[in-house]
Design a protein around this nucleic acid. Structure first.
Lengths: 192, 192
DNA sequence: CGATTCTTTGAAAACAGTCAATCTGTGTGG
DNA sequence: CCACACAGATTGACTGTTTTCAAAGAATCG
């Protein structure tokens, strides 16, 4: 199981066998069944989580009880609640499995220690954060400037692996449109 | 002028006089008049920019020529285009001054070198990125789940310094609503 | 299969956007 | 100092998109 993470890492950065061993030592695996929570609102999140298999979703619940999806994560993606991880405050988000999944977990402190010892790893993790930020910014632009149809087109272009893998109403939730609207948008598109 | 940045830094992290000197050495100041560009779409952004005085705005222009504001930055905030900085690609964003402003600039490579020498600084910059990401995520939730009124209320709550400082139609642009809608929302709120 | 979850469809209502005109305040040049 | 121009804000009427609610149909899973 660690091989997936190992392959991921070595395809991105150079690590010695020794360093990989160190990383393996702090890695813990967790199997999740579909619908099972990885993190529940109100709990404090102290992990770094890498998806080895399956598909996860991060979402928040508003005052009226409606769910809003912040992110999807499939194989070779990271997931978790960075805000809770950073501040130590209870998470505002929930994370659960959309499919049976296997998650690799590394405790916050352990990964921080490793990052000190392995500068390449530190750099790499920082890079991921940087990219995540860029993705967020682009998503904001989509949110504030695209029509429902443009949002969906942009989604299947930027996240094609997700589009056919998760229920449609969840994509609608991610895009901030109603499931009915998404259904109609797709209908329109098919006619063209 | 460097005092502003110095105060900012020392209020956040501990730095020796020597380290502060090193930082001062790589700092360059740029005065901008209202409406003047700090970065124009298509140029590559290679700086770290800290606002010492004034107010800046980051925006993108869509296919139809409409402007969409990504961010505001006032005193003691950072600005810039992280995507262009990271990838080396031409910027998709414009940054200009909403007021006469003074910006402190540090070249990408120079700040990176300093970060290697001053771990506390590296940590701190990473923290800012982390926070920026969290802010982005919260903004996405607002985008996909709030009504126009809620968006505005959330804005004056989370960015009160900005609300009375920039033209209303720019706030509308930032929120992804039309200036007329924002005007009406404010009108409604006043009546209550 | 039966039950649940998911998607689609229709009709009505709510919401936000557009266009155009007017109003307000500010700053600049004569 | 005034007049004018200009940017910004407001208002009204209209349009259009999206949501909501409700119901029916399709797909999936135990």
């Amino acid at each position: 199981m660690f091989d997936i993470f190992r392959n991921y890492l070595t395809s991105k950065i150079f690590l010695t066998e020794e360093e990989l061993k160190m990383i393996e030592t702090v890695s813990v695996f967790k199997k999740l069944r579909k619908r099972q929570y990885l993190l529940q609102e109100g709990d404090v999140w102290k992990m770094n989580a890498f998806v080895c298999q399956g598909c996860m979703r991060t979402y928040r619940v508003d005052d009226k009880g409606a769910e809003h999806i912040l992110n999807f994560a499939v194989e070779n993606w990271w997931t978790g609640d960075r805000e809770s991880l950073m501040t130590g405050n209870p998470a505002k988000s929930n994370i659960d499995a959309l499919e049976d999944s296997v998650i690799l977990l590394i405790e916050k402190e352990r990964l921080e220690n490793l990052s000190v010892q392995i500068p390449a790893l530190n750099n790499f993790l920082n890079n991921i954060l940087q990219k995540s930020f860029n993705v967020s910014q682009n998503r904001i632009i989509a949110n504030i400037s695209y029509t429902a149809e443009e949002k969906y087109l942009n989604f299947i272009e930027t996240r094609p692996e997700i589009a056919n893998r998760v229920p449609q109403h969840m994509i609608a939730s991610y895009l901030g449109i109603s499931p009915e609207t998404l259904s109609r948008v797709r209908n329109q598109m098919a006619k063209k």
